[in-house]
């Protein structure tokens, strides 16, 4: 495990698409450093023969029948949209003008 103090809070916040205030960055860097230091405990045991466990019980792919069934109407699906027009979400332009 790497040195716990080297958590780069700007890099992590960018990965998470999360805007943090300068105060939050400073506070989190210290707190996460402490937390990661506590995580060092995990180094204390040998896990080379252990399988990773992603779920409490074996989980297999579950497939539904390929049948049409009732679903939300566009109006219902958009009921919480922050901005909408003509049954579509309004978002800022994401492509440049040619």
């Amino acid at each position: 495990m790497s040195d716990a103090s080297n958590i780069d809070i700007d890099y992590v916040a960018n990965l998470a698409r999360l805007q943090l205030t300068p105060e939050e960055k400073q506070r989190f860097a210290g707190q996460l450093g402490d937390i990661l230091e506590h995580f060092e405990k995990l180094k204390s045991i040998d896990v080379s023969n252990e399988e990773p466990m992603a779920h409490p019980f074996p989980v297999f792919n579950v497939l539904g029948a390929d049948e049409a069934s009732p679903t939300l109407s566009p109006e219902q699906a958009l009921v919480n949209a922050p901005k909408q027009r003509d049954q579509q979400l309004v978002v800022p332009k994401v492509v440049d003008d040619a």
Binding site: V12, L15, Q31, I45, P52, M53
Partner: peptide
């Protein structure tokens, strides 16, 4: 926010094996 940062860190490139994968093994 703190937990999102922590979760993004333990899954990030270069740290995944040391944190997330190891934690899954200890979970076992």
């Amino acid at each position: 926010k703190r937990r999102i940062c922590l979760g993004s860190f333990v899954l990030s490139s270069g740290y995944y094996d040391a944190y997330y994968l190891r934690a899954q093994k200890v979970r076992n």
